[in-house]
Amino acid sequence: MLTVLLVEDDRDLAETVIQFLGIHNIDCDYASNGQYGVNLLQKNNYDVLLLDINLPRVDGITLCQQARDNGNNTPVLMLTARDQLKDKIAGFNSGADDFLVKPFALQELLLRIQALSRRRNGHAKVLKHGVLSMNINMREITLGEEQIHVSPIGWKLLEVLLRHAPEAVARERLQSAVWGDEIPDSNSLKVHIHKLRKALNVEGEAPLLHTIPGYGFAIQERKAL
């Protein structure tokens, strides 16, 4: 089941959207103002964020920008009555992935949610999970207080893993992200995962990179040894 967060101060519209999405097996949390939306986004993981621009307390542009600056890569679909180019530019610059101008057809909303949830990459500038942080713009990876270095392929693998953390990523998806359709021999992914795991290892600490048997790999927070 997909889970979305709707941040919208029009309660009538919100009720209609929530009921419609429920019919299509999409669970929807609701915030009537921007600050409550910020709180929910910090506490929970969502597949898609549905975000109005004109919101009380914290407006949609600011909310989206703060989320991206904090490393949140949840795809954002902005719902807005504004259809001017300057407003869309401001939204995209803040990290939005798509726009839907009110009034909109609920079926189109559903299709866009499904498309964004499949993409699941957003425009985060910093990807974080636990003590691990990847700054996309600066091309830096930090583990706690220390900066670490990985190969170009290791970077691609880690970026995909962090964008989905703590969920597991299938081997096939990782191979496609790195090599596209020209996948080398079957041992290549294993070799590069081994090198990435070594780069992320800290003596005396539990591992961050986990093998999910029969499926793939996942970045998950350390647990006590």
Rank of each mutant, 00 (worst) to 15 (best):
A81C: 08
G60N: 05
E203H: 09
A96V: 13
K88N: 05
N201I: 00
L5H: 05
H194A: 12
R197V: 10
N54T: 03
P184Y: 00
E108S: 10
H192R: 07
K86D: 10
F99C: 02
M1V: 14
I212L: 04
H24F: 10
Y215F: 14
V169Q: 03
A96Q: 09
L55Y: 02
L200R: 01
N93S: 12
T80M: 07
V48Y: 04
H149R: 09
H149T: 14
S151R: 10
L174V: 11
P103Q: 15
T3K: 15
E159N: 12
P103N: 10
S186D: 08
S151F: 08
S94E: 03
L158Y: 11
V150T: 14
A177N: 10
G22Q: 08
D87Q: 11
P75T: 00
I136P: 00
N25S: 14
H194I: 08
T3M: 11
N70A: 06
L85G: 11
K86T: 15
D52I: 00
L50Y: 02
N33H: 13
K43D: 07
D69F: 01
N135D: 15
R163M: 11
Q84M: 05
A67S: 13
G95F: 02
V4W: 00
L225K: 14
G122V: 14
K190H: 08
F92Q: 09
D87A: 09
Y46R: 00
D98S: 11
S151T: 15
L85K: 11
L79M: 00
A96T: 10
A168V: 13
R112W: 05
K125M: 08
E205H: 15
V17A: 03
